Simulated assay, not measured.
Amino acid sequence: MSEEPAALLTAYDDQLRERAEFHGAREVVRHGPLWWGIFSHGGFCSYRDLAGAEGSDVDELVRATVAHFREQTGVERFEWKTRGHDAPADLPERLVAQGLVAEERETVMIGEATGLAVPVQVPDGVSIRRAGEGGDLLDDVRRASAMQESVFGMGRGSDPEELARQVADVAGGGLWLAEADGEVVSAGRLTVVPGTEFAGIWGGSTLPEWRGRGIYRALTAARAVAALGLGVRYIHSDCTDMSRPILERSGLVAVTTTTPYIWTRD
């Protein structure tokens, strides 16, 4: 029996915030309830909660964060990750007032891996496999990245060589491809979160002419099977409004929303 959304949200808050979000950061600094980290792609700010801060106390946390990344790091931008169920309710307005810009809101989806690991019918001629199994890993990653850029736009795909290094570690997850006549028509990653019961599914994309045929659901199922083999209990993803119905059909449940607020150096 699947868990209720409230229980899934509790697991999310307990396991996927703070320390788990900063795995792989080259530098982490604590400031009150905040965690500040620096990654290869820039700075990142998150927290479990703001310890009841309101009003001017929140403004001071935002000012301190901007000052830290502006004056003490060389990053060009940082993300303050908000969640829809967090307090205070006026945090978004306070972030904008200090120069941060909201990006697209996404829905946090969670489901038990056992519920997702089910057979899914795909069209004749379509095959699904893990990148590097039955093919060259770097070539698989390059072709998947090119497909992703064709869907999301140039510059939106992952760096192929960096991604190949990441997915080479089987215990850390991997990249799955759906192919038809040698063409990558859909792809998505699985990333196990160290020290938790979770793995994330990310980067999911399907060529427009192949959508609505069960292919992405099959990719989700294949990743769930792999996750179970790695001891994972929960699958999670931050998804757009376009992806949400697909993940809901796969068995994930919406538990909250998340909106990145971005600061960029002048």
Score class of each variant (00 low, 15 high):
residue 131 A to F: 02
residue 15 Q to R: 01
residue 75 V to K: 10
residue 159 D to W: 09
residue 168 A to D: 08
residue 150 S to R: 15
residue 59 D to K: 02
residue 193 V to P: 00
residue 140 D to K: 03
residue 205 S to Y: 07
residue 74 G to H: 11
residue 236 H to W: 13
residue 53 A to S: 09
residue 97 A to K: 06
residue 128 I to D: 02
residue 209 E to P: 07
residue 33 P to E: 07
residue 61 L to P: 03
residue 147 M to D: 05
residue 258 T to N: 11
residue 167 V to K: 02
residue 85 H to S: 14
residue 78 F to N: 06
residue 19 R to D: 15
residue 207 L to V: 14
residue 16 L to C: 03
residue 135 G to K: 01
residue 40 S to V: 08
residue 82 T to V: 11
residue 64 A to T: 09
residue 245 P to H: 08
residue 105 R to Q: 11
residue 248 E to V: 13
residue 216 Y to R: 05
residue 89 A to Q: 13
residue 58 V to K: 00
residue 75 V to I: 14
residue 129 R to P: 04
residue 160 P to E: 02
residue 128 I to M: 09
residue 119 P to N: 09
residue 63 R to A: 10
residue 68 H to T: 04
residue 143 R to A: 15
residue 54 E to W: 01
residue 197 E to L: 09
residue 61 L to D: 02
residue 210 W to T: 06
residue 183 E to H: 09
residue 84 G to D: 10
residue 3 E to H: 03
residue 113 A to I: 00
residue 213 R to T: 13
residue 134 G to S: 05
residue 229 G to W: 03
residue 226 A to K: 09
residue 152 F to A: 15
residue 32 G to A: 11
residue 262 I to S: 04
residue 241 D to R: 04
residue 266 D to K: 10
residue 100 L to Q: 01
residue 84 G to M: 12
residue 76 E to S: 13
residue 195 G to L: 04
residue 249 R to F: 04
residue 208 P to R: 09
residue 245 P to L: 08
residue 130 R to Y: 06
residue 138 L to Q: 04
residue 153 G to I: 07
residue 139 D to M: 04
residue 67 A to E: 11
residue 96 V to I: 13
residue 114 T to R: 07
residue 199 A to S: 08
residue 138 L to I: 11
residue 115 G to S: 10
residue 248 E to W: 03
residue 152 F to I: 05
residue 41 H to A: 13
residue 207 L to N: 06
residue 85 H to R: 15
residue 74 G to F: 12
residue 244 R to C: 08
residue 249 R to E: 13
residue 259 T to A: 01
residue 115 G to N: 01
residue 184 V to R: 00
residue 139 D to T: 12
residue 144 A to W: 07
residue 81 K to S: 14
residue 85 H to K: 14
residue 40 S to F: 11
residue 82 T to Y: 08
residue 234 Y to H: 13
residue 264 T to P: 05
residue 179 E to P: 04
residue 212 G to E: 09
residue 141 V to P: 03
residue 184 V to D: 05
residue 240 T to W: 00
residue 253 V to E: 14
residue 150 S to H: 12
residue 56 S to K: 09
residue 81 K to C: 13
residue 232 V to W: 06
residue 3 E to C: 00
residue 265 R to N: 13
residue 223 R to P: 05
residue 17 R to E: 06
residue 84 G to Y: 11
residue 146 A to D: 15
residue 109 M to F: 04
residue 240 T to L: 00
residue 13 D to S: 02
residue 48 R to Y: 10
residue 221 A to N: 07
